[in-house]
Design a protein around this nucleic acid. Sequence first.
DNA 1: TCCTCAAAATGACACACTGTCATAATTGAT
DNA 2: ATCAATTATGACAGTGTGTCATTTTGAGGA
Lengths: 220, 220
Amino acid sequence: MPKATYFNLNEEKKARLMQAAQHEFSRAPLEDVSVSAIVKDAEIPRGSFYQYFENKEDLYYYFLGNIVTDIEQHFFDMLKKTHGDLFAAMTLFFNFAVEEITEGPNADIFKNVGTNDFQHGQNSKHFGKNHHKHPFFKAVLAIEDKIATSVDRTKLRIENDEELKNLQQLLFTVFAHTIGHYFRSQKEDSPETIANAKAEFATTLDWIANGALKSKKELG
Amino acid sequence: MPKATYFNLNEEKKARLMQAAQHEFSRAPLEDVSVSAIVKDAEIPRGSFYQYFENKEDLYYYFLGNIVTDIEQHFFDMLKKTHGDLFAAMTLFFNFAVEEITEGPNADIFKNVGTNDFQHGQNSKHFGKNHHKHPFFKAVLAIEDKIATSVDRTKLRIENDEELKNLQQLLFTVFAHTIGHYFRSQKEDSPETIANAKAEFATTLDWIANGALKSKKELG
DNA sequence: TCCTCAAAATGACACACTGTCATAATTGAT
DNA sequence: ATCAATTATGACAGTGTGTCATTTTGAGGA
């Protein structure tokens, strides 16, 4: 988490820092962005950076957290609109998020976000045993719980809270995977369209909702 | 890919290099392992390392590839044994692989393998636009195709090759996710058992095979 | 107005790692 | 024994990280 000193900064300096973060994390993935580049971009002395943040990762997750929080709110909106229907909400959410993520003002950042970035426990060096203490990861976990209480379980083949959480995680894993697939395809000879990505996600979601195996009827 | 010079090395030196790789990649994830540490471990001069490999990543994926190739063969065995039943094969495979991965001689390496590591296009800095040229990623893609031809499609709700590939990817994503979940849980207060992991995977697979939504019968 | 002190700012520094390159050693063929 | 090609080697330039002693700032009190 950014240190108190950061939050005491005047708005102009905070904005300059966030703009630099936006710049740099749009340009390259986390591992290729250096503190040196960030301070150069923000025009602040190196020592100051470490007055404000623990390190690169601290800024990254703080910055990413702000963006993600905005988007995630929409998931709850969708969940409310569909009266807790997890699959319907997920479809609506994907269709909104895929455009926000691939064409919104932060698109370039998401291009550089790794699938791993939402799982704590990955960056051994920089976070020690304190991943879970960073607000970003706390938030990710809190969202899981919050969703769980808003979901209508009556139509789901789940036995307990544990299974519901696993199902949620499965859906978000698929979400991330599909977005990742879209981005990777952009670098290849035959890039996917957004419509493609939506269709791919819909198909996958349909498998998870209704099964990838044919029913007896279909087989008969 | 390792350079020709590496393959010309005598067995003793090659073995020492692989042992060092085993050591180092067991100790920490890719990003935290340094060439400096590897050459120290293997007791070869720094210059020599760069005579054999492009960089750290080159060695990593070569090494990982060798391990994975061994394990993947079992997937084909299972697919043959189940006469192309993708879901049955996946279950058998998971039960074998989870033990191999979590308790086998390479367990410590898999602890440090990131979910991303199997997706090319992630390490921007070290592989440029040549990810796909590295044998490891070539192999990963080749396996996808090879599986596709061995799968019995008649029971699956898929329309075309594209969808089959997506289904396969979904299953392997879930595979990786479940293994990852297991490893992460080991670092927490209430670690999962292997039996837990198997059960979790079985449940998830059942959702994908038969649907996470209740059937009309169950609802009625 | 001047003084004091805690908070903030600063950049030089020690340390670590990377990839290269000029040079030296080795090998195999003649 | 000679030569050319291959391989070995470690010093080096370049880049990055996080710290720390020192300086600057600003708010409150005399």
